[in-house]
Every structure is written in structure tokens, then in C-alpha cells.
């Protein structure tokens, strides 16, 4: 899923400093699961903003609302009663960065992102998330024991570990596991370490962002 984290409160306060009436919109999708922008986080941020603005002598009228999803126009439409009557002068979205863009597309309002959309990943343990995919658009992980060197190797190497791999850690940081050590261990365990001798050819990045912004059209689903 999409992993995001909330921007620092100071940054959010600075964004909305000139606005008096703000609609704070959460999302029940990925950002609820990764505890960044669900109903609960909307409540916490809403209170923090109100208190800070009150303290600063510049009170903020803020309404909280959480949508089912913000990456679907159908749900964005539900904001119409609130956003089409001048009740609010800005929207603060707590969805991944698709949300604020969808809101901005539909309504002529100033929209701010409250989160930093960080990566496609999963949770390692309670409170810890890590990156697992860079959406290169042509998945090749079966060549690497099911692990992704594109997103998980700091240099996206496709032919084995660089010289900096040390004690299972990446040269970039002790906090990062060297995915090539993990690939080697797994291929060894699977009895397939010989396959690592094969040169992985030059990758076609045109399916990635390098080919321009991407779009999927499914004729079978179009109405």
C-alpha cells in the first residue's frame, strides 16, 4: 500500500496561516492503515491546529471529515455540499497525494497536502514501515528470489551487491538491510544460488516514470 507520514505541525500551520475556515479531510484507505491520515489522525491534527491558532490569537474554524477514499472521484463528490458554498476557504487533505489533487481538480479551492506520501511499502512491525516497490511497471522480482533490488538496493543494482555491502547492511546506512545479501541468502536457501551467475540484462525503464506519467486503460471495465 501507499505509505505516508504527516508533515510537521509547523509546516502545516505555515501553509494554512492565511486561512480562517479550513476543511480537514481524511481518508479511510492506505493512510488509515498506516496511521497517517485516518479518522483518528484527522482528530489529532484538527485539535492541534485549533489549539495552536487559538494560542496565536488567530482562531481557526476547522471542520473534520473523513472520506471512504480520496483516490476516487465518486467519493470526492461527497464534499460538494461543503465546498460549493463558500463555507470554507481552504482544504487540508490527509490522504496520500492523490487526494489533494483530486479535490483540487473538482473544486476551485486552495488545497494543501497534510501528508508526505513516501513510498509503496508494508509494515515490518507495529509502527515501522519500509519500502518494497518503486512501481517500475515491469515486475522482475522472481529473478531475485522474490525480492526487489530496484526499490530495496540503494543503487538499484541488478547484478549483485556493490563493494559496500557489509555484514548484511547497505553502505548507505546501518538502518538499511543490503537487499543483495537477502537475495543471496534466499537463493541459497532455495538451492538456486547458481541462477545468480546469470547476467541480468539492461532494464527497459520506459514502463517506469521515465516513460512519462502513466495511465492504465481497461477497455473491459470502461462504461
Amino acid at each position: 500500500m501507499v505509505i505516508a507520514e504527516r508533515k510537521p505541525i509547523e509546516e502545516i500551520l505555515a501553509m494554512v496561516a492565511d486561512f480562517k475556515k479550513v476543511l480537514l479531510v481524511g481518508c479511510k484507505g492506505c493512510v488509515t492503515v498506516c496511521c497517517a491520515g485516518g479518522t483518528k489522525e484527522v482528530g489529532i491534527l484538527g485539535s492541534a491546529l485549533r489549539i495552536a491558532r487559538k494560542k496565536a490569537g488567530n482562531p481557526l474554524a476547522l471542520v473534520e471529515h473523513t472520506l471512504e477514499r480520496q483516490c476516487d472521484p465518486e467519493y470526492i463528490e461527497q464534499l460538494a455540499p461543503m465546498l460549493e458554498n463558500g463555507e470554507f476557504d481552504a482544504v487540508l487533505s490527509m490522504a496520500c497525494s492523490v487526494g489533494p489533487q483530486f479535490i483540487a481538480k473538482r473544486y476551485l479551492k486552495q488545497v494543501f497536502p497534510a501528508l508526505n506520501t513516501t513510498f509503496i511499502g508494508g509494515s515490518l512491525e507495529h509502527g515501522v514501515w519500509a519500502e518494497f516497490c518503486q512501481s517500475c511497471g515491469n515486475c522482475i522480482i522472481h529473478n531475485f528470489g522474490g525480492l526487489c533490488p530496484i526499490s530495496r538496493c540503494s543503487k538499484s543494482l541488478m547484478n549483485g551487491p556493490c563493494g559496500g555491502s557489509s555484514g548484511g547492511k547497505c553502505e548507505v546506512s546501518n538502518e538499511i538491510d543490503c537487499v543483495w545479501q537477502l537475495i543471496y541468502d534466499r537463493m541459497t536457501a532455495l538451492g538456486q544460488v547458481d541462477r545468480m551467475r546469470k547476467i541480468f540484462p539492461i532494464k527497459d525503464w520506459s514502463t517506469s516514470r521515465d516513460g512519462g506519467p502513466r495511465k492504465i486503460t481497461r477497455e473491459d471495465l470502461k462504461l
Binding site: P161, C162, S165, G168, Q181, Y184, M196
Partner: peptide, 15 residues
């Protein structure tokens, strides 16, 4: 270049 001392050591000759 080659680093004979990078890990995993057993893979270095393969690389």
C-alpha cells in the same frame, strides 16, 4: 572494479 571483501564473501568470485 572488484571488492573481494564485500559481503557476501562467497558471492564475490561469482560476481
Amino acid at each position: 572494479a572488484a571488492n573481494p571483501f564485500g559481503d557476501p564473501f562467497d558471492f564475490r568470485v561469482t560476481r
